[in-house]
Structure formats: structure tokens, C-alpha cells
């Protein structure tokens, strides 16, 4: 434990960096991934906004982003990040590739949760004169909500994992700290403590997500 106190300031800073990186990823997932996933679903064959072209383009984009080895995606996006933020180095810059993978990751899980909604419920909504917007917010998201929460939980845990390699662009975070101070300086004990912090964090998130999704599921 002594060693933890010795590095207390750095540890807190790295935890803060992880929270920033994961927090921005979560925002991107909800604000952009959720709508993209909803379009992926609605543009499928036989669905309300059936559109082969929009579906194929979105589907391809999501697949391509997700099939990149993440480290290569980060490097590949450096020019784009620089264009957007003026720099490709640091915690803020690290949120760019993280947000992009977050959107692709969560949108796919959103699409899958929405596929679980019985088609008849949407048909009943159409028969009641609901618009597409009303169908999405008053029927689709309500009926799929526990799946959406579980999907977000899975996504957040992946974002934490992705964030651990952001040291390559100076993003910092718990993972980077564990590698630089623990692994590279042969302080195995320190590295173990960092891993324990990550495990606890993931457990907490999974527990919260599972509980919430169970409570809101009335099916």
C-alpha cells in the first residue's frame, strides 16, 4: 500500500483521465451511436424506413470501424484528430478515436436490441396513426429499454478497455499509468493495484447496468 501513497497524485490524475476518456465516449455513444443504431434498424428490409442504400452505407461504415485493430485506428485517425482539435496528443485528442469506436460499437448493440422488439407492437403503433418519431420514442425505445441499458453497459466496459492503450497518443489514464510506472519500472505491486482498481470499476458498472436493466424490464 505504501507505494500507492507514494504515487497518490499521479494515480488520481490517471483515474481522472480515464473518466474523461470514458465519459466522452459514453456521451458520443448516446448522442450519436443511439441515433445511428436506430437508423440501422429502421432502414433494414421490411422496417419503417426501409432503405437499402442508407442501410448498406451505415452497415459498412460500422463494420469497417469495428474491424480495425484499435491501435491502428488511433494512428490512422491522427490527421483527422489534428484537423479537429489542432493537436493529436493528450487526453482531449484521445477522446476522438475513442468516440468513433464508441459510436460504431454502441450503434451495433442498439440495432440488435431494437430487433428484439416484436414487430406487431410497431404495427399497432402505425395503426394508431403514430409518426416515425412517435414510434421511436413512445414505442421502440420503451420496449427495448432494458436491452439498450445492457448494451450500454457492455459498451462502457469496452470503452474502459480501449482507453487503456491511449498512452500511445499521450492520453494517459489508469492503463497508461500501470504500464509506465508499474510494468516499465518493474514495480509489479503497483501494476497489480492498478489492475485491481480496473476490476472493481468494471464490476461496479456491470452490477449497476444489470440491476437497472432488470428493474425497468416489465416484459
Amino acid at each position: 500500500m505504501q507505494i500507492m501513497l507514494q504515487y497518490e497524485a499521479e494515480i488520481w490524475q490517471s483515474i481522472g483521465e480515464t473518466f474523461v476518456m470514458v465519459g466522452v465516449s459514453i456521451l458520443a455513444a448516446i448522442l450519436i451511436g443511439l441515433p445511428v443504431g436506430t437508423f440501422l434498424f429502421l432502414c433494414r428490409k421490411g422496417q419503417l424506413l426501409e432503405n437499402r442504400y442508407v442501410f448498406s452505407v451505415l452497415n459498412l461504415l460500422v463494420n469497417v470501424i469495428r474491424s480495425f485493430p484499435f491501435l491502428l485506428l488511433v494512428v490512422f485517425l491522427i490527421p483527422f484528430t489534428r484537423l479537429l482539435l489542432g493537436t493529436a496528443i493528450g487526453t482531449a485528442a484521445a477522446t476522438v478515436p475513442l468516440s468513433i469506436i464508441a459510436i460504431a460499437h454502441y450503434s451495433r448493440l442498439v440495432e440488435q436490441s431494437l430487433l428484439d422488439v416484436p414487430k406487431g407492437v410497431l404495427e399497432a403503433a402505425v395503426s394508431m396513426g403514430a409518426s416515425v418519431r412517435e414510434i421511436i420514442f413512445k414505442f421502440l425505445y420503451i420496449e427495448a429499454r432494458s436491452g439498450l441499458v445492457l448494451g450500454l453497459t457492455t459498451s462502457i466496459i469496452s470503452f474502459i478497455s480501449y482507453s487503456t492503450i491511449m498512452g500511445v497518443v499521450g492520453g494517459g489514464g489508469i492503463g497508461d499509468f500501470a504500464i509506465r510506472y508499474g510494468y516499465q519500472q518493474f514495480q509489479t505491486e503497483l501494476m497489480m493495484y492498478m489492475i485491481i482498481i480496473m476490476v472493481i470499476l468494471v464490476q461496479l458498472i456491470q452490477f449497476t447496468g444489470t440491476t437497472v436493466s432488470r428493474v425497468i424490464d416489465k416484459r
Binding site: P118, G120, V121, E123, A124, V126, S127, M128, G129, A130, S131, F139, I142, E143, R145, I216, D217, K218, R219
Partner: peptide, 22 residues
């Protein structure tokens, strides 16, 4: 106009199609 017209045409189904979370 069709959406408006549908509001005065009710419909029920074999499998009810209620919203399970409402």
C-alpha cells in the same frame, strides 16, 4: 392526413400487440 385518418380506425390483433413495458 393518413395518420390523422388512422386515429378514427381502431385495430386489434390476435396477439394483442400491447407495449409490455407500459
Amino acid at each position: 392526413e393518413l395518420r390523422r385518418a388512422r386515429k378514427s380506425i381502431g385495430m386489434i390483433f390476435q396477439h394483442f400487440h400491447l407495449v409490455a413495458n407500459k
